[in-house]
Amino acid sequence: MDLVLVHLFPDLLNLYGDRGNLVTLRERARRRGIHVVVKEVRLEDDLPADGDLYVLGGGEDRQQALVARALQQHAGTLRAAVAGGAVVLAVCGGYQLLGHGYRAAEGQQLPGLGLLDVTTEHPGHRARRLVGNVVARCTLPGVGSLVGFENHGGRTRLGPGVQPLARVRVGFGNNGHDGTEGAWCGTVFGTYLHGPVLPKNPRLADHLLTLALRRRHGDVRLQPLDDRWEEAAHLAAAARAGLRLRR
C-alpha cells in the first residue's frame, strides 16, 4: 500500500512546529508498512494532482498574504483532488484560507478557496488575541478529546455547510463565542489547534490516514499502534489546561 502526502508551502507556513503534523502522518503510516511519498510544494511549483492527503500549516500575516495569492492558482487542482476523495488538513492560517476569505487586521481582504463554508475576520490589533491551551470534544466518531494550543487574532464563523471539528471545553476555539473549534466537511478539515495537533491526538491522525488510504485502496482498516507516549502527552497537555481526562 502507498500514500502520497503533499505538504503545501513548508517554507512559508511552518510557524508553530507544523512539520510535526507531517512527521506524525508519515511515521504512523510507515509503522504500518505503508510506503509514503512526501511531496513539498513551494511558491513557484505546480500542485501535484495525485495527492492522497494535503497539509497546510500556519504563517505570519505577511507569509499568509503570499500564500493566498499562490493558492488561488492551485484552486482548480485542489478542488478536483477533493472531489476525487483526497483529504485536506489545514491549521490556523491555512484553515482561514480554506474558507471563503480572510479579512486581515488592517482591513485587507485575502481570497480563500471556498473548500470550507467558513469566513474569518481579524477584529484589529486592539482586540485580544485568542491564545492558550485548548481541550475540546471532537465531533468525529471514535476520536474523543482533542488537545492543543491556539494563538490567533482572526475570528472564524461557521456556515451551514460545515460541522465544527470539536466543541471547546477549555479555550476559545473558532471565535471565542460559540464554543466551536475548527470545521470539517467530507474529507476537508480545518483547525486552530497546533502543538502541533496530530502527535498528541493520534486518533485524529489515524482518522485522516484512514480516509486518505481509502481513496485508492478500498476499505482500509489501520492496525493499532503502541500509543502509550502519545496518550501520556495527550493527558499531560489536558492536565496543564486544567482538565483531568480519562481515555
Binding site: 510535526g20 512527521v23 506524525t24 502527535p199 507516549w229 501520556a232 502527552a233 499531560a236 497537555a237 496543564r240
Partner: peptide
C-alpha cells in the same frame, strides 16, 4: 519538567529509541 511527556513524544518521532528515554 511540566512538559516532559511532550519532550518524550518529540524524541520518539525523531527516531530516538524509547528504551533509551526515561520520563
Amino acid at each position: 519538567g511540566l512538559r516532559a511527556e511532550d519532550m518524550a513524544l518529540r524524541l520518539k518521532y525523531a527516531g530516538w529509541p524509547e528504551d533509551r528515554t526515561t520520563v
